[in-house]
Amino acid sequence: MSFERDLLAILPRLRRFAVSLSRDRADGDDLCQATVERALKARDQWQPGTRLDSWMYRIMRNLWIDEARARQRAAKTFASEEAGENVGHAGDRDVEAHMALSDVDRAMQALPDEQREAIALVLVEGLSYREAAEILGVPMGTLTSRLVRGRGALLELMGEAA
């Protein structure tokens, strides 16, 4: 058993989490790569015997939050009158990415970050409320209210077809 092999075994699930957080596959895989790189560097901080997947989810989530904040800052700095729909994105790539997106992807992207990460951990990754709250570093009550609001928004965005 090596650390790398353990990581490889959970990589399909990490990709799933990354894609559910990200705008598209390419962003998801970039996030996944950054997470693996960070984990390999920080491997001494992982305590054997604890859940490797939870540790990885936490690293990924923190990287994603950092990146989202950086993107918001960039958007504020560079936004012009044409910003509107394309805040922080390269236009061409958006069109391309949207073609491959289903209504589930689009609805997830429309959620505020804090709701999206809660939904991703519980509904996509299937974690318990306790596990998800620990990864996000929030009390259970906060997690459940985000789940309620996030689901309400998803149902609305996806319409009755859900």
Partner: peptide, 28 residues
């Protein structure tokens, strides 16, 4: 809604992991 999200993203976990991610771990 739960079944739909679960089913939707389950497809991602079934795909082969991209080479560049695998290579990262292989090299390490």
């Amino acid at each position: 809604l739960r079944a739909r999200l679960t089913g939707h993203y389950a497809l991602v976990a079934e795909e082969p992991v991209p080479d560049r991610l695998r290579a990262l771990l292989e090299e390490s």
